[in-house]
């Protein structure tokens, strides 16, 4: 990658998330590695069951039991955070990593006013007086575009509409200027016309506050508009990772390629959408070799037996044997 002078803000190495069940251990995230640089927006995209949300939860230490990190490490500014004790991890979560979830109601306590939640978060992580904290909270609410923040600050979450609530959540995530924000499907629960507002706001706020973003979503459109780089996940692994333009417009992995073709677009008159046959395998029956091989139109013998690692192709890295030089020569 081009800027080697910047050390990555977040490093995830060989992350493996397991769920022990009575029918054996399910591996939901398997050998996932990626970096996020300071101020960068990394999109993590995939269909349900791809493991994208679990990767996010693992990074912030919010995996729900019995899920657990079975291997690998997560480093924030070079410091390991995947094995921190609960209390310390909570400090990291508030102060260094902010969170925005799909449903704003799960991030806001319905019993407290919006102001109290903001002020408390600021007071926990910063050494300021209560008045200063309140002033900062009002400024933040104004910054995220909430009209009449002096009045709205004393209202409860249920008095806000869905879009306004998500604005409050963004304010809450950024109120102590974290270095990283993890946004898990931040626009999925919102109406189409609101989604664009929230995406734009999230992007602007993170830029102004100097926060990097890990944006987890199933919506390629959101990724295309927001992310600098994108990781495409399939069956618990990264299939392709690279600059957003390369991945969206010139997808290399057959899965990404099929995925992009299956999205209907206005102005594209086709009778049939590109169709990836079948569906994402259940965690209990992930095929041998490349997990995508039974659905892949280009699969050959090696795909069925050997699991591909990420192979660099231009600026992108692709987990597909089609791009392996040795295999290419053999094919020729």
């Amino acid at each position: 990658m081009s800027d080697t002078e910047r050390t990555p803000l977040l490093e995830v190495r060989d992350l493996r998330v397991e769920f022990p069940t009575r029918r054996g251990t399910l591996v939901a995230v398997n050998g996932v590695s990626f970096d996020i640089k300071e101020g960068e927006v990394l999109g993590v995209v995939g269909e349900s069951g791809a493991g994208k949300s679990l990767t996010g939860s693992a990074v912030i230490g919010l995996l729900e039991p019995p899920g657990r990190i079975a291997a690998g490490e997560v480093r924030l500014k070079g410091r390991r955070i995947d094995n921190l004790p609960y209390r310390e991890m909570r400090r990291v979560r508030g102060r260094e990593i902010g969170m925005v979830f799909q449903d704003p109601l799960t991030s806001l306590n319905p019993l407290y006013t919006v102001g109290r939640q903001l002020v408390e978060t600021i007071l926990t992580h910063r050494d300021v007086s209560e008045e200063t904290a309140r002033k900062q909270a009002i400024d933040l609410l104004a910054e995220v575009g909430i009209p009449a923040p002096e009045r709205r600050i004393d209202q409860y979450p249920h008095q806000f509409s869905g879009g306004m609530r998500q604005r409050v959540v963004i304010a809450l995530a950024l109120c102590v200027n974290p270095k990283l924000v993890i946004a898990d499907e931040p626009t999925t629960a919102l109406d189409v016309s609101i989604q664009a507002q929230i995406i734009k706001l999230l992007k602007r706020m993170c830029k102004e506050h100097g926060a990097a973003v890990m944006l987890i979503t199933h919506d390629m459109g959101v990724i295309a508009e927001t992310a600098d780089r994108v990781a495409v996940m399939y069956a618990g692994r990264i299939a392709e990772i690279g600059p957003v333009r390369d991945v969206v417009q010139n997808a290399k992995h057959p899965y990404t390629h099929g995925l992009m073709g299956s999205i209907p677009m206005i102005g594209h008159d086709t009778d049939r959408l590109t169709q990836i046959e079948g569906s994402m395998p259940r965690l209990t029956e992930i095929p041998q070799g490349c997990a995508f091989n039974p659905r892949c139109p280009h699969a050959f013998d090696r795909c069925r037996s050997e699991r591909p690692e990420l192979i660099p192709v231009d600026d992108t890295r692709v987990a597909c044997w089609l791009f392996d030089e040795g295999a290419k020569k053999a094919a020729e």
Binding site: S161, G162, G163, M164, D191, V192, S193, I194, Q195, A196, Q197, I199, K200, D219, M220, G221, V222, A224, E225, V244, R245, V248, Q249, M260, I263, M265, I266
Partner: peptide, 24 residues
């Protein structure tokens, strides 16, 4: 017009979308 304008731009033409004001 507003609804059409709110659709994310997958073709990455760099078109600046004008987010819709207000909510339903």
């Amino acid at each position: 017009r507003m609804l059409l304008d709110a659709i994310p731009d997958l073709e990455m033409t760099g078109r600046q979308r004008i987010p819709v004001a207000g909510e339903v």
